[in-house]
């Protein structure tokens, strides 16, 4: 029964459901929004935990980014596909169930395919479940929009997330270990800035990045822009 409900997801493709979708939005906009203008980490300040915890090397950042992208796209497509059949009261419960399923799949697959990376990411792979980006996109976008738009939005957000992780990972690995993807950059005479691959380095790097982004947005707007507070609080509030 439920299976049948999932299948015809493609039928809803392109059907404008949300009252918000008054003017047609170009697919390009759906895709690119997450990369810079509404970058989940740098602008929306979501998903801080993995951004800080696993970015001590480029390889870890890529693995975490890809795992999150997989869960994000999978969950958003499915949430959008079944949005007409899911009663409002159990909406969030359904989302969480879907996300947890995709994360379990990603966790087991990563452990089977790349055990070394799985080990160095450790508990942070299962913790993708509570990455606010996924629940926020599922609730704010996928539960109201067509499958196609949701997929594009999820892809864009996922790429935005990967880019941010990659930026963090590159800065921290170069400064903290003097390497890039494990290859030595400066030779043996370089004394690595070890603190950058340790927890304080995560906080300081992301703090500096947010500072630069804030300064840049303010300069571009020519006036003070409102400070971004983490948006997970209101999203999470709806869960209970």
């Amino acid at each position: 029964m439920t299976h049948g409900a999932v299948e015809p997801a493609s039928m809803t493709h392109g059907a404008p459901v949300a009252p918000r979708a008054r003017r047609p939005v170009a697919p390009r906009e759906d895709l690119l929004r997450g990369v810079w203008k509404e970058n989940p980490v740098l602008v929306q300040v979501l998903g801080m935990c993995p951004t800080l915890a696993v970015t001590n090397s480029v390889a870890n950042s890529i693995a975490m980014g890809l795992a999150t992208l997989f869960v994000l796209v999978g969950s958003c497509v499915l949430v959008s596909g079944i949005r007409r059949w899911v009663p409002d009261q159990v909406r969030i419960a359904t989302f969480v169930l879907i996300i947890a399923t995709f994360v379990t799949v990603a966790d087991m697959t990563l452990e089977a395919v790349a055990p070394a990376i799985h080990k160095s990411l450790g508990a942070f792979v299962p913790l993708i479940v509570v990455n606010c980006i996924i629940l926020a996109r599922a609730e704010a976008f996928a539960s109201r929009q067509s499958v196609g738009r949701s997929a594009l939005d999820a892809l864009g957000m996922g790429f935005g997330f990967i880019l941010t992780l990659l930026l963090m990972g590159t800065i921290r690995e170069i400064l903290g270990s003097g390497t890039l993807l494990g290859r030595s950059l400066f030779g043996p005479s370089y004394e690595p800035w070890v603190i950058m691959v340790l927890p304080p380095g995560g906080f300081l790097t992301l703090g500096a990045l947010l500072l630069v982004v804030g300064w840049w947005r303010q300069r571009k707007a020519g006036r003070a822009v409102p400070v971004n507070e983490p948006a997970c609080a209101p999203t999470v509030g709806k869960v209970a």
Binding site: F203, L206, L210
Partner: peptide, 22 residues
Amino acid sequence: PQPVRGTALVLLIAGSLSLAFM
């Protein structure tokens, strides 16, 4: 200064606290 306010400041403070906790 405006750009530092909010999350950026919290993270920079957290960095120093984290350093202390090491």
